[in-house]
Structure formats: C-alpha cells, structure tokens
C-alpha cells in the first residue's frame, strides 16, 4: 500500500538536475512521476521510479544526498471534483498532508495522486473506507 519515493537534495545551480537524470539514465531507471520543491538556495527532487533500489544506488554513487520516503498513491477519476473527492476522507480523518503531486494515467481515464502525510496508516485506512483504491507498490512502479 505504501510506495517508495526517492528524494534527492539539489543545490540551486545549473546542471544539477541534469546530473541526477544522467545518473538515473545510465542505471536504466525510468521515472514515473516527479515533483520539485525549491527555495532560493536549494531544492528537493522527489521521484517515483520503476526501480527505487537501483535509483537510490545510482544517485548516491553519483555523490548526491538521497533518502527514501514512504508515500501513498491513489487512483482518482480524471474529472472535475476528482481531487476534491479524495481529499474529503483525509480531512474527515484529520490527516495532515505535507505535499501532493499528481499525474495522469496513460489510458487517460483516471489520474494518480501521490500523498505525503504524517500519519500514513491512518490515511490509507481513511481512503479505503472512503472507497478509494490505494495502489499497490508494484502497480505504481509498472505504470
């Protein structure tokens, strides 16, 4: 139910994002989804990939500071109100969201929302009780 996200510390200077992506490319890692959070001096690159172990190894050997974070991926209908709908059970269960990012599935019928929350087990329960499909790890990597 929990998906492994690879988080990488990047200094805000030219060529660093390219360097990370080059490491991943050389290791044959395919990026499924990504988001970047940035400040004036640095950023954190967050990735969902097809092979987290290979990605962690490649990036850390490339000299980057990297860590693994557990997140949840939920399938929601790709239509107006889709995101609002999935947020309701979390709000009701009093689960605070640290950050989210979304991507649209290839078939185009549904979108996938990645959540980083503080109380991950409570969040999974709330979503399942609300009738949402929390994706299995393998299925996310295979998208």
């Amino acid at each position: 139910m929990k998906v492994r996200q690879v988080s990488i510390f990047l200094e805000n200077k030219s060529g660093r994002l390219y360097e990370v992506c080059r490491c991943l490319a050389e290791a044959g890692v395919n990026i499924r989804a990504l988001s970047v959070a940035e400040t004036a001096d640095y950023g954190v690159l967050r990735l969902i990939v097809n092979d987290p172990d290979a990605a962690m190894r490649a990036v850390s050997e490339g000299g980057f500071t990297v860590s693994e974070t557990e997140v949840i991926a939920v399938e929601v209908p790709d239509e107006p109100g889709g995101l609002a709908g999935v947020l309701a059970p979390l709000y009701d269960a009093n689960v605070n969201i640290e950050y989210i990012y979304c991507f649209v599935e290839k078939s185009g019928s549904s979108a996938i929302v990645v959540f980083r929350v503080e109380r991950i087990d409570a969040a999974i329960r709330a979503l399942q009780d609300g009738g949402y499909k929390v994706m299995r790890e393998e299925d996310v990597y295979r998208i």
Partner: peptide, 15 residues
C-alpha cells in the same frame, strides 16, 4: 554540507 542523517524530503524540515 547536507548529510543523509539530516536530509529530509520536506522543505520545512530543511528550513
């Protein structure tokens, strides 16, 4: 330098 021990995926923790 940010070591793996102090790194976090959350900007607020880094801040």
């Amino acid at each position: 330098e940010v070591s793996p021990q102090v790194f976090s995926d959350e900007i607020k923790r880094l801040e």
